[in-house]
């Protein structure tokens, strides 16, 4: 089977490594009269990455195909966590620390548990956000963005 999850990951890494090597080659000749140039080391590293990646892809292709457990439900929570972090970062400065962090912590608590007792979870989120604010802003002197400037 040419496409399964570990193989797709290796193909992505291979594509990145090839892109890296091409960019390294575009930096110029690896050796000049004055010695090694800035492209030498990246070419070496890119080449090594492609070598290791090829070995791993060949190993996976030669290996027995793993039995797919269709009865195990797939868990996509990690993807939702990534989405939550992404939107949290986007809203961090425009919305300010309190609103963005409150929504973020609430979203994560719900993602890690269930869509129940939402009021209790909202209250916990508010407490966490305030404690973290006191810790960063007051204790460690970190200036966090707020709507009031």
């Amino acid at each position: 089977m040419l496409l399964n999850r570990p193989l797709v990951f290796l193909y992505v890494i291979l594509a990145v490594s090839v892109g890296y090597l091409i960019s390294a080659l575009n930096l110029g000749a690896p050796i000049s009269e004055s010695g090694l140039t800035p492209s030498f080391f990246p070419i070496l590293v890119g080449g090594a990455a492609i070598f290791f990646c090829s070995i791993l892809i060949l190993q996976k292709l030669r290996a027995e195909p793993e039995k797919f457990q269709s009865d195990v439900p797939r868990n996509y929570t990690h993807i939702w966590v990534v989405v939550a972090i992404f939107f949290y970062i986007l809203g961090f400065k425009p919305m300010g620390y309190f609103i963005s962090s409150g929504l973020f912590v609430f979203a994560l608590i719900v993602l890690f548990s269930s869509f129940e007792k939402l009021l209790q979870k909202a209250a916990i989120s508010a407490v966490i956000v305030v404690i973290a604010y006191v810790m960063f802003q007051q204790l460690f002197g970190v200036r966090l963005p707020t709507l009031w400037g």
């Binding site: 966590v81 962090s101 973020f104 994560l108 608590i109 890690f112 973290a132």
Partner: peptide, 10 residues
């Protein structure tokens, strides 16, 4: 676990 990981992420 839900509170713990929310705090760590924050």
């Amino acid at each position: 676990k839900d509170v713990l990981y929310a705090v760590i992420a924050l």
